Simulated scan of single mutants.
Amino acid sequence: MASLPPDLLKSVHNVDIVIERRPTARDRKQAKLGPGGLLLGLYHGIPLTKRGEYYNLVAPDKISIYQEHIEDVCRDDDEIREQVRKTVLHELGHYFGIDDDRLHQLGMG
């Protein structure tokens, strides 16, 4: 988190970032991921762009980071740290309402 841009972090509210060993079947379904695919992270919540005027008093949104899948695509601790950073930024993009296509265009795929 310390390596993320401070201006970005100032705009993020009520979001928990958690590390989980691997995605659940429900997570895989939400991500539309088949049985053999890797899922590095997942945003659970309602993006800022979809929240209405009555959006309040809700549990925090959550960003899950999947340890085993990240370890599967990285060779060493430095790559793991960089991949976690990229994954958190990608999932924060979803928090801000940016879809996967646009995140790929921005180099955050």
Rank of each mutant, 00 (worst) to 15 (best):
Ala2Trp: 12
Ser3Phe: 09
Ser3Asn: 15
Leu4His: 10
Leu4Gln: 10
Pro5Glu: 14
Pro5Ser: 13
Asp7Met: 14
Leu8His: 06
Lys10Phe: 01
Lys10Gln: 05
Lys10Leu: 04
Ser11Cys: 10
Ser11Trp: 06
Ser11Thr: 10
Ser11Leu: 14
Val12His: 05
His13Gln: 04
His13Ala: 02
His13Cys: 02
Asn14Gly: 01
Val15Asn: 11
Ile17Tyr: 00
Ile17Leu: 00
Val18Arg: 14
Ile19Gln: 02
Ile19Arg: 02
Ile19Trp: 03
Glu20Trp: 12
Ala25Lys: 03
Ala25Tyr: 01
Ala25Gly: 01
Asp27Tyr: 08
Asp27Arg: 06
Asp27Trp: 05
Lys29Met: 10
Gln30Asp: 03
Ala31Phe: 01
Gly34Asn: 03
Gly34Leu: 03
Pro35Asp: 05
Pro35Gln: 05
Pro35Tyr: 02
Gly37Ala: 11
Gly37Trp: 04
Gly37Val: 04
Leu38Tyr: 01
Leu39Glu: 06
Leu40Met: 04
Gly41Gln: 07
Gly41Val: 06
Gly41Asp: 09
Tyr43Lys: 05
Tyr43Met: 04
Tyr43Ala: 04
Gly45Ile: 07
Gly45Trp: 08
Arg51Cys: 11
Gly52Val: 10
Gly52Trp: 11
Glu53Gln: 12
Glu53Tyr: 09
Tyr54Lys: 12
Asn56Tyr: 08
Leu57Gly: 12
Val58Ala: 09
Pro60Cys: 08
Asp61Arg: 10
Asp61Met: 10
Asp61Ser: 15
Asp61Ile: 05
Lys62Asp: 02
Ile63Tyr: 00
Ser64Pro: 00
Ser64Thr: 00
Ser64Ala: 02
Ser64Glu: 00
Ile65Met: 03
Gln67Ile: 07
Gln67Ala: 14
Gln67Glu: 15
Glu68Asn: 02
His69Ser: 15
His69Lys: 13
His69Gly: 12
Ile70Val: 15
Ile70Asn: 06
Glu71Lys: 15
Glu71Met: 15
Asp72Pro: 00
Asp72His: 06
Val73Met: 13
Val73Ile: 15
Val73Gly: 13
Arg75Gly: 14
Asp76Ala: 08
Asp78Cys: 08
Glu79Met: 15
Glu79Ile: 11
Ile80Gln: 09
Ile80Glu: 07
Arg81Gly: 12
Arg81Trp: 12
Arg81Tyr: 13
Glu82Gly: 01
Gln83Phe: 05
Lys86Asp: 08
Thr87Ile: 04
Val88Ala: 06
Val88Cys: 05
Leu89Gly: 00
His90Lys: 07
His90Ser: 07
Glu91Met: 10
Glu91Ser: 11
Leu92His: 03
Gly93Ser: 01
Gly93Tyr: 00
Tyr95Glu: 09
Phe96Ala: 10
Phe96Ile: 07
Ile98His: 03
Ile98Asn: 03
Asp99Gln: 09
Asp99Pro: 04
Asp100Trp: 05
Asp101Asn: 14
Arg102Gln: 08
Leu103Ile: 09
Leu103Lys: 08
His104Ala: 07
His104Val: 04
Gln105Ser: 13
Gln105Asn: 11
Gln105Thr: 07
Leu106Asn: 07
Gly107Val: 09
Met108Ile: 12
Met108Gln: 14
Gly109Leu: 00
